[in-house]
C-alpha cells in the first residue's frame, strides 16, 4: 500500500497544493517586512479567484483571467493600505473587514452576474507547460518518470511561484529596495530620516501582497479547480500567514514552509482514496492542514522573531 501512496503524483500534488499558499505567504512576507500586518490575504485571494473566473468566463482567455485576478487583488489591497497606512486603523481589524467584504462582494456579484449562489460554470483549467513523454526503459527510465512527474508536469503559475520566491528573496536581501523594505518594518523613523517615504514604501509592499494573493486565487480557480465556489479559499490565507512565520519572514522560507503544508494536503487527499483500508473518517484527514498549522506555530514561535515595527501605524512627527 505504501508504494501506492508514495508516487511521483503525491509529490507533484504537494507542489500544486503549496502554490497558492506560497504566493500568499510571500505576499504576507513582503507586507509584514514593511511593517503592515495582512490578515486579509484570505479575502484578497478570494477576490482574485472570483474575478479570474469572471473574466475567463467572459473572454474565454485564461491569461486575461490571471491578469484580472492580480489586478483585483491589488485593488482590494489598496483599501487595506489606505485604512492601515493613511487612516492608521488597527491593521488586524481592517484585514478582518476586507475578509468579510470579500465574502460579501464575491457572493453579491455572483448572484448579480449569474443569478445564483454557490458555484460558477466551469472555466476549464490551464494545461501543463511541458508535455514530455514517459519512458519505460529500465532504471534511468524510472528516474526520468519521477522527475517528469514531480517537476515537469505543472501549470504556469506553479513555476511562476518558484521564480517569484527566488526573485523576491534576492530583491529583499540584495537590493536597495529590499534594504528599505526591511528597515520600514524594523525602524520606520530611521527610513524617514534618510529621506525615504514610509507611506510610499508601505503602500507598494501592501499592493504587492495583494497582487500575489490575487495570483494565488487565480491558481486556485484557473489551474486547480476550474470554477469558483463561494468561500473556496477555506482558511488558506491564514495558513499562508503561518507559513510566512514558519519561513522566518523570508520568501524562500515561506515557499518551503508552504511545501510542508502542501504536502500535508496532498497526503490527506491521497489517503482518502484508501479510506476503505485505513478506516478513519474523512473529516480527520481534512483537519490535517489546520492541525499541522497549529503544531508548527506552537513549535516555531519564540525562536522566530518578526519585524519589530509590524502592526504599528507610522505617524510622521
Amino acid at each position: 500500500m505504501l508504494g501506492d501512496i508514495i508516487t511521483p503524483d503525491l509529490f507533484a500534488s504537494a507542489l500544486r497544493m503549496a502554490t497558492p499558499l506560497a504566493l500568499a505567504a510571500i505576499g504576507g512576507t513582503i507586507c509584514e517586512r514593511s511593517g503592515v500586518v495582512n490578515i486579509a490575504l484570505e479575502g484578497m485571494m478570494l477576490v482574485g479567484a472570483f474575478f479570474g473566473t469572471v473574466i475567463t468566463l467572459a473572454t474565454g482567455n485564461a491569461w486575461l483571467g490571471i491578469i484580472a485576478a492580480v489586478v483585483s487583488g491589488v485593488a482590494v489591497s489598496a483599501i487595506h493600505a489606505f485604512a492601515s497606512i493613511n487612516l492608521r486603523s488597527d491593521q488586524v481589524v481592517s484585514g478582518t473587514a476586507i475578509n468579510i467584504l470579500a465574502l460579501g462582494v464575491t457572493g453579491f456579484m455572483m448572484e448579480r452576474l449569474y443569478g445564483h449562489p454557490g458555484t460558477t460554470d466551469p472555466t476549464g483549467t490551464l494545461g501543463p507547460v511541458f508535455k514530455f513523454a514517459m519512458s519505460d526503459d529500465g532504471f534511468f527510465g524510472t528516474i526520468w518518470n519521477w522527475i517528469n512527474g514531480i517537476f515537469l508536469s505543472h501549470t504556469p503559475i506553479v513555476y511562476m511561484a518558484i521564480i517569484i520566491a527566488i526573485v523576491a528573496q534576492w530583491a529583499m536581501f540584495r537590493t536597495r529596495w529590499g534594504l528599505h523594505l526591511r528597515a520600514l518594518g524594523e525602524h520606520p523613523r530611521a527610513v524617514d530620516t534618510v529621506g525615504v517615504s514610509v507611506i510610499r514604501g508601505r503602500w507598494i509592499a501592501v499592493l504587492m501582497s495583494g497582487g500575489l494573493a490575487g495570483l494565488a486565487g487565480a491558481n486556485l480557480t484557473l489551474e486547480q479547480v476550474g470554477s469558483f465556489t463561494e468561500n473556496m479559499t477555506n482558511g488558506r490565507g491564514f495558513i499562508a500567514l503561518a507559513a510566512n512565520i514558519f519561513g522566518h519572514w523570508t520568501p524562500v522560507g515561506s515557499y518551503l514552509a508552504s511545501l510542508l503544508f502542501g504536502f500535508a494536503d496532498a497526503l490527506q487527499i491521497k489517503l482518502q482514496i484508501f479510506r476503505g483500508e485505513i478506516n478513519i473518517p474523512p473529516q480527520f484527514f481534512l483537519m490535517l492542514p489546520y492541525v499541522l498549522t497549529v503544531v508548527v506555530l506552537a513549535g516555531v514561535i519564540g525562536r522566530a522573531v518578526g519585524p519589530a515595527a509590524v502592526g504599528k501605524p507610522y505617524e510622521k512627527e
Partner: peptide
C-alpha cells in the same frame, strides 16, 4: 442578493476602525 448584508457589515467595521 442577501450578501449585501455582509458588505454592509464589512463597511461598518471599516468606518468604526477608521
Amino acid at each position: 442578493p442577501q450578501k449585501i448584508i455582509l458588505i454592509i457589515q464589512a463597511l461598518v467595521i471599516f468606518f468604526v476602525a477608521a
